[in-house]
């Protein structure tokens, strides 16, 4: 990491997504919407920050893990925080989120994801945590998610039967 990159990483690392005056914060919402533990949500936010840093320094497109993508989606909803505070004031560049356009792009995303994992390891000198950064097969297999009203439906894992 160059000095300039280290300075940028430090700014991103210190960027705060949680409003301390809010009774229901960004991380609380992340916990609720994904049924994650608070510890896992906080770690996912940290990995999201690492991913955004990698995007800033990478010359090629990158793809996040699904968990990191969920943090990104939620941050995009907080439009002022994302576009003004984060992109404009902290990253000093706009970072757009590009959802897939279909199966024809699947090969590209696999390559981008592989590049992301390699760049992560190269820059942070550590292996991405496997519980947040799945292997490439799991990353593109476990994508069948649906929004469910838990007041009306039970969630029962298939492996029980």
């Amino acid at each position: 990491m160059t000095d300039q990159q280290a300075e940028l990483w430090n700014s991103i690392k210190e960027f705060e997504l949680d409003d301390i005056h809010a009774s229901f914060s960004f991380s609380d919402r992340l916990v609720r919407e994904n049924a994650w533990s608070l510890a896992y949500a906080i770690r996912a936010i940290f990995e999201y920050k690492k991913f955004m840093f990698l995007i800033c320094i990478s010359k090629t497109p990158l793809t996040p893990s699904d968990q990191v993508d969920q943090v990104w989606h939620l941050h995009l909803i907080y439009t002022e925080s994302y576009w003004i505070d984060f992109c404009q004031n902290t990253l000093q560049q706009p970072i757009h989120h590009g959802p897939t356009k279909g199966v024809e792009q699947r090969g590209n995303f696999r390559e981008y994801y592989q590049n992301t994992l390699s760049l992560y390891q190269n820059i942070f000198q550590t292996i991405p945590p496997k519980d947040i950064w799945n292997d490439i097969e799991t990353r593109f297999k476990d994508v069948n998610f649906t929004r469910v009203n838990r007041h009306k439906y039970w969630l029962v894992p298939k492996k029980l039967f």
Partner: peptide
């Protein structure tokens, strides 16, 4: 625990 699993993470004191 959190610092062991995610080195160099910062935690809000509330969390």
């Amino acid at each position: 625990q959190m610092f062991i699993v995610s080195p160099s993470i910062s935690l809000n004191i509330k969390d």
